[in-house]
């Protein structure tokens, strides 16, 4: 039986009195690419952050590879070893070189030797097309390069699922495509991905499932073909017409 890679069932979350996630149900199968879009403040980041437990949900269940997330440190450790995350602001470690950014997790959390970790790091730097920047500090790289280093850093942990939270929103326009290209390649290689983005060209190319969120709810969910050509809800139609205009 093939279990879903990620399953959210009736997930609710509040920030104080503010009901930020309302009954979220979402299944991501192994190898699937899910793209989440929606207006700012609709709860997209919060969904993704709940999946890897940077935020705690208060009601409902989240399962990763069939393991339910609880307060148990073991379940958190499972998530951390299976789910990678790429942030809008890259969050590279500024005091470390690119290579050290990539080897820190494998050495400290996985117990790899320095040599093994560096081999792996160089392999993934190659994959994101920046093989020659290993000894630089993050600040010496362009935004697009930094985000690709961040992707490589996640890949070094060999996660089963990669989460992306608006990975190109902080980038200058001319650097967006170099990051998206890397993500498309990852998708084609079969990585399971959950991507929050407004890059609809990317979504059309790789998404198996589109999710539209508004005000803490999943308003619409569907295959990209129907999603883009024939959105069911008024809110989704309006949102799409706005972002597809330019």
């Amino acid at each position: 039986m093939s279990e879903a890679a990620i399953e959210l069932a009736g997930v609710n979350k509040w920030f104080g009195d503010f009901h930020v996630l309302k009954d979220i149900n979402l299944t991501v199968n192994a190898g699937e690419k899910v793209v989440i879009c929606g207006p700012s403040g609709s709860g997209k980041s919060t969904v993704v952050r709940c999946i890897n437990q940077l935020e705690k949900h208060q009601k409902g269940a989240i399962r990763v590879d069939g393991v339910e997330l609880t307060d148990d440190p073991k379940s958190v450790a499972t998530i951390r070893s299976e789910v990678g995350m790429v942030f809008q602001q890259f969050n590279l470690f500024p005091h470390l070189t690119v290579l050290e950014n990539l080897t820190l997790g494998p050495i400290k959390a996985r117990g790899l030797s320095r040599k093994e970790a560096e081999e792996k790091a160089r392999h993934y730097l190659d994959r994101v097309h920046i093989p020659d920047q290993a000894d630089k500090r993050p600040i010496q790289l362009s935004g697009g390069q930094q985000q690709r280093v961040a992707i490589a850093r996640s890949l070094c942990m060999e996660p089963r699922v990669l989460l992306f939270d608006e990975p190109t929103s902080a980038l200058d326009p001319e650097m967006i495509s170099e990051v998206l290209d890397v993500m498309v390649e990852l998708a084609q290689e079969g990585m399971t991905m959950v991507v929050v983005t407004h890059e609809m060209g990317f979504a059309r190319k790789v998404a198996d499932k589109m999710i539209f969120m508004d005000a803490g709810e999943i308003v619409e969910e569907g295959h990209p073909e129907h999603f883009f050509t024939n959105p069911q809800s008024e809110r989704c139609r309006k949102f799409l017409s706005q972002i597809l205009q330019h």
Binding site: N52, L54, A77, R80, S81, V83, G84, M85, F87, Q89, N91, L92, F93, L104, G105, K108, A109, R110, A150, R153, S154, C156, M157
Partner: peptide
């Protein structure tokens, strides 16, 4: 974001502080 990035690459609390 620094602490969160450290957590998502599997570092525990002490490792996150230390490194």
């Amino acid at each position: 974001g620094q602490r969160e990035a450290a957590q998502t690459i599997g570092l525990n609390y002490v490792q996150t502080m230390r490194y």
